[in-house]
């Protein structure tokens, strides 16, 4: 029934026996205990579960843990550096009040990082399009857009 997987999460190696149907988000949250990534829907449309797998932002609710076998995963818990210094997208969200209830925030941070990794100085339109896979019900997105802009500036 179960299969053995080995992954690296936020730089640390893990090995577990898992059911093939175990979703990556449930693996991260319930097996590994990293509850920063959230579940907001079943249909891959809210983005709250976004993590990086081998450098690519993906929705971990739409991937089985077994598919990640051997992969290197980055979650919101691993965004800050080893000394605890926040990543520039975290700084941006903090300074620009890019969050309210905080539930969508981990996914927003992860996708914002991907936006900036690929395009260091995006336009407002490019930021908004980049956030297309992530829903926020609190902010109306304006402060999130400003947060990404601030993070972009901090990276220059």
């Amino acid at each position: 029934m179960t299969q053995t997987i080995s992954v690296t999460i936020n730089g640390k190696p893990y090995t577990h026996d898992v059911e093939p149907r175990l979703l990556l988000i449930h693996y991260l949250r319930e097996v590994v205990g990293l509850t920063g990534s959230h579940i907001g829907c079943e249909t891959s449309l809210c983005g709250a579960c976004t993590v990086e797998v081998d450098g690519r932002a993906i929705k971990s609710c739409t991937m089985f843990a077994v598919q990640a076998n051997g992969a290197s995963i980055l979650t919101v818990e691993g965004l800050a550096d080893a000394s605890g210094k926040m990543h520039r997208v975290q700084e941006g969200f903090w300074n620009e009040h890019g969050l309210q209830c905080g539930f969508c925030t981990p996914g927003m941070l992860m996708v914002s990082k991907q936006i900036l990794d690929r395009n260091p100085s995006p336009t407002e339109t490019e930021i908004r399009e980049g956030l297309d896979g992530n829903l926020c019900r609190c902010t109306g997105y304006q402060h999130i857009v400003k947060a990404v802009q601030a993070a972009a500036k901090a990276g220059v």
């Binding site: 919101v76 965004l79 926040m86 975290q90 969200f93 969050l99 981990p106």
Partner: peptide
């Protein structure tokens, strides 16, 4: 919330 350490009900 920014670092993934906030506790929502499903995190309990």
């Amino acid at each position: 919330m920014l670092t993934g350490t906030a506790t929502y009900v499903d995190d309990i």
